[in-house]
Each structure stands twice: as C-alpha cells, then as structure tokens.
Design a protein around this nucleic acid. Structure first.
Lengths: 240, 240
DNA sequence: CGCTAATCTCGTACCACGTACGAGAATAGT
DNA sequence: ACTATTCTCGTACGTGGTACGAGATTAGCG
C-alpha cells in the first residue's frame, strides 16, 4: 500500500504517503486501515505516553500481526507523522473567522493549546526532524492563512507566523505539562524545590533568588497563556 | 559517583546530580570524567545526529567499557540532560548588559540561536519531559533575569519570558535546519515541491496556493530571525 | 474457468539498544 | 595487612525496529 520505493534516503515521498487513496485493482484486500492503526497508536500515546507506542503494542491493539503494520506505514517514523496529522483533524472545523485577524490568531492558538493538552506527546512530536504536511494539517494551515489575509504580510511571512504561533503553544503547553507532572509527584517537587533553594542560597544567583522569593502567583496556566499570547500577537501587529 | 538512589520513580534528585563534586574519600579513582563522557556524547550528536548517541558508541569514543558510563550518569536520559547543560556552557560569558532590556533580550536570543545551529539536536532536546537546570543553564538564566531587571515584571513573568524566548529560538532554528536539510537533498526537495504544487492545484487550498505562488523571498534565515524577534520583543514591551 | 501477477498477512529471525548483575581491581582509612 | 568503599567492565537479558519470505487472497486475462 505504501511499502513502495521511498525515493532514496531519509524520507518518504509525500505524494506517495498522503494522496494515493485509490484502491489498487489487484491483490488481497486490506484487513485493516491506516486510520484504525493510527487511531490505535494515538490512543496508546494518550494513555501511556509516547514510549508505549511500539509496533508490537499497536499491532496487538488493532488485532494485527506486527509486520502487517508495514503495509500501511513504511516505518515507525512515518507512523508518528500519521499520528500528528490524525490528531490535527480535531482542529476541524475551526471557529469561523471574524475578520479581526488578531482575535482569529488568538483563537487558533487556543485551539492548538487545547489539542496539545489532550495529546501531551504532541509538542515534542512537532520537533521531529522528519515532518510532513498531511491533509488535516494542511486544512488548518489553510485556515490560519485565511485568518492572516487582512494583514499585509506576504506568503512567506504568513507561514512564519503560523510556525511561530504553533511553537509558542507547544512551548507553553510543554511547560504546563511539566509543571503538572512535577506537582503530581510530591517527592520530585520537593527535591526540585530543595535544589533551587540551595542554588538561590549560594550567593551566585541573586536574580534567581529574588525571582523565587516572590510569592507564588495564583495564576492559572490558562491566564498565563492568554496573557503571553496577547503580548505576542500584539507584537506581531507592529510590522507591515 | 551518581549511581545512588534516584529518589524513587521517574527522575534523579537534582542535588545528587549537579552539586556533589566533592571527591569521595575511599575507593578506586575514576578513570574518566563526567565532562569527558558528556563532551564525547555531544561530539557524536553534532557529527552524526542524536540517534548516534548510544551508550556503546559513547563508551567506545571515550575508551571506556559500556557499563562504566553508569558510574557517571544513572541512565541515558540523564546523559542527555548533561549534554544540554554542557553545551549551554558555550553561552558563557554572555555579552555584557547594556541596560536596554529589549536589546539585551535580543542578544540573548541570538546567542541561543547560534548555539542551536552549532548543535542541531538541541531544539528537540529542550522538549524532553525530563529536564533539569544544570549550572550552565542556571548561569545563563541568571543572566537573562538580570537583563529583565529594568522591566516591572515579577519573578514568575520573567521566567516565562525566558522560556518563551528559548522556545522561539528553538522553533525558528528547527525550521531553519529542516529547510537546510531539504535543500541539501535535491530529490527530497523536488518531491516536497511537487506535493505542495499538487495540493495548491486541487482548489481546496486557495490561500496556500497564493502563498506559494508569490516569488520566493531572498531573505536569509538571519534576517527572518531578527525580524520576528524584533516583533516579539516589542510585543512583550506592551505589558506592565 | 484456470492462470498469473499483484497485494496483503504475519511467523521467524536478526541485530542494536539500554541496562541489571556481579566478579574483579584499585584506593584510603584503620 | 585488613576492610570498606568505589570504580571497571564482561556477560547476559529483555525489548525494540524491521528484513525476509512463504502462504493467502484477489482481479484481470485468456
């Protein structure tokens, strides 16, 4: 199905990967589907973390033999790309555009944040060297580009802004998840606090000491995200 | 040396990891050093990518037996953390502060970008679930906090800004590296171009089609980085 | 209606990886 | 010297990705 020639070294031909849904005329009928396999992998990653996604476990979830997966994705890296595009489908349909590009851009970022919170492995997955724009990702990108139409940015600049917003959301959500994980295990949190206190007390980090000595703000991650997003989008405003 | 009790599940106690350089009084002398091992791992990652960093290859580079590494780092994850902090040492000494916090913040981001370009595995490594603030990272964080002193931001907000700037640099550099990798293999680049052209021609992605139809800007990654950084930092200005 | 080529299924097997275990070697204090 | 401590590292186990290839199923063709 996809097992074909991967055009040489490194990556899979995107056309081969994304847009050949036409059934081949001859040969045995597929017993599974790329969608089902991808969904199983996503469920596994959501429930037990990205490290739980192994070919063996995905196969057993689907009820397939391990090697059967390779009829639907040429290797595990590709399966990860399929996972990213699969969950990106949850971003459709997006909120309708208002014409206020700043507000629309903020809505886009909030949607991305919600998606990443549902799939905590996503922020890191977006940093894989091998990435690919699947149909769902492309649909959302199209939406983001439309949101930026009122601006005077050229095509390349719009793409950069989209990458920037996505990266912003990924960074903030990654921090948010790490913070939550820390809070979830008291021992770990206490060790971290002890360590930072020791560093702050060594006299070589006065700024850090002051930053940590301030009372912990009662702000929710939501509020932090919204505040920084506002600052960022307003900053983008300044340019042509 | 570090092999001790890792405080239970998940992570290593930061105090155990970073601040016990005092030589134990009894026992065999170490034949290697954490620094040498970490440096070898970094060299390997720089030369052949992060996947080339295996315990076996690092050990052979250092001239040690594989299991000897475990006297210096309790597991591979920790070795990766050591690598991150190791290269962060290249950020010292930073440019002296000017008092203009916007300019200082931009200088910080540029230094981070240069670092990430030297170590292409770094952007992705910053998204690992287990992270830790080593001495070099802390020194640079201290510098960044000092740069933000002229602002009225509270401690938490300053930390967020630092995370934001780091994430910004990581995102842009990751894009830059991906672009360079694509350009480096003509076949891959051509396949990607063909795919995007096909998508643009399907009529369902007018905005994307327009963005791609525009002439390719002759801008260097440096200029792009500087421009977006300006926008971002100016945006941060708006707040308290 | 066989025949053939294409496609999918999946058991077996290989190799690389992280690392637990434990025996041996070196060192410092008694 | 003796002993406790610390480091070194060969061996071995379990797990992971995936190459290989034999068998099963299908569609078109004569």
């Amino acid at each position: 199905m996809v097992r074909g020639d991967g055009s040489g070294a490194g990556g899979v031909d995107p056309q081969q990967l994304w847009l050949n849904s036409d059934r081949p005329r001859k040969g045995r009928k597929p017993a599974f589907s790329r969608t089902a396999i991808t969904a199983a992998a996503v469920a596994l990653a959501d429930a037990e973390g990205i490290d739980a996604v192994t070919m063996r476990r995905v196969a057993s979830q689907v009820g397939a033999g391990v090697m059967s997966l390779y009829s639907y994705a040429p290797d595990k890296e590709t399966l990860l790309q399929l996972m990213v595009d699969h969950v990106s489908g949850e971003l459709s349909p997006p909120d309708p555009l208002t014409g206020d590009w700043r507000a629309d851009l903020k809505a886009i970022a909030h949607a991305q944040r919600a998606l990443m919170l549902r799939h905590p492995w996503l922020p890191a997955a977006l940093f894989n060297r091998r990435w690919s724009l699947g149909p769902n990702t492309l649909a959302f990108l199209e939406h983001a580009l439309a949101a930026l139409r009122p601006t005077a940015l050229d095509g390349g600049a719009k793409l950069e802004v989209f990458s920037l917003i996505t990266g912003f959301a990924a960074r903030l959500v990654a921090d948010e998840i790490a913070q939550a994980a820390l809070s979830a295990s008291p021992g770990q949190a206490a060790a971290e606090a002890r360590y930072l206190a020791a560093v702050a007390a060594d006299g070589h980090h006065p700024e850090l000491a002051e930053a940590l000595s301030a009372p912990v703000r009662p702000l929710t991650p939501d509020a932090t995200f919204a505040r920084l997003l506002d600052r960022m989008v307003d900053g983008l405003d300044a340019g042509s």
